[in-house]
Computed example of a mutant assay.
Amino acid sequence: MVAQAEHCETCVVRNRSICSALAPEDRQMLGREGRIQTVRKGQTLVWEGEDALLVANVIEGVLKLSTSTSDGREQIVGVVYPSDFIGRPFGERSQHSVTALVDSRVCLFPRAAFDRFAHEHPELEHRLLNRALDELDRARRWMLLLGRKSATERVASFLLEMSQRLGETHCNGAGPLDSFELPLDRQQIADVLGLTIETVSRQLSSLRASGVIDLPSRRALDIKDRKRLMALAGD
């Protein structure tokens, strides 16, 4: 097993995660509080409504944030990628479940230990605040997407966001990907976008027929005309 301090020095997301706010010696100190855990596809790391005992940095993979509606249905409320932060520091209850969409790895911290460390390191608290504000901005953009955009605009916007976020993780920030595997199936995409699975399938087929994208397999996607896709997204 790799020592945690050694892992911190070789961690692929250390320059983009919340830990990047810390000096190297402080990062290693925080690292000694954590442990690396593999989360298999379909495995739930955190359950909605449970005591918030853990927080985590995503190192590898893609996970979904979901909540249950009053009639028991699942609603996906977000997707997290490498370098994203999971959990609710200084909170008592988990607001949503966190489940791996693909095999993933996370760096887990006991929430109580993380909270104490954050209190002692204002630069980490400041980074957490910035992250929270970024998530608020993302939530506002998503409200616009769901409330104002057409089905075509929603699907196009979703594909562009996937391209950008997956590009950040695979290309070290070099730019969005033109070819990638969708981490969500069509039903999950429909749930995220507030559409039916039939509508999502029709929109993808239409984009493919018009030469904007290609779908080599059920999950694989190639963006053939990014400018047209951006125009269809309303960007």
Rank of each mutant, 00 (worst) to 15 (best):
L160R: 08
F180I: 03
M162R: 15
R202S: 02
L166P: 00
E135H: 14
L124G: 07
G194E: 07
L166K: 10
P122M: 11
G173H: 12
L221Y: 06
D134T: 04
M143N: 09
R219S: 14
T152V: 11
A209L: 13
H170F: 05
G173A: 02
S201T: 11
M143R: 15
L177K: 02
Q164R: 15
L129E: 11
P122G: 02
L204W: 04
A174D: 07
D222V: 02
S201D: 14
V102C: 10
G211M: 04
R219V: 13
S179Y: 06
R218E: 14
L124I: 15
C171T: 15
A220F: 07
V192W: 11
D115T: 04
M162K: 04
D134F: 11
L177I: 00
M143K: 12
A174Y: 04
L129P: 00
Q187N: 09
D134A: 14
A156L: 05
E120C: 07
V192A: 10
E161S: 08
G173N: 05
T152A: 09
E123P: 08
S206V: 00
L128W: 11
R140K: 06
R218A: 12
Q188Y: 07
D178R: 14
W142P: 00
R111T: 14
C171A: 10
P110Y: 01
A112D: 14
C171I: 00
R186W: 07
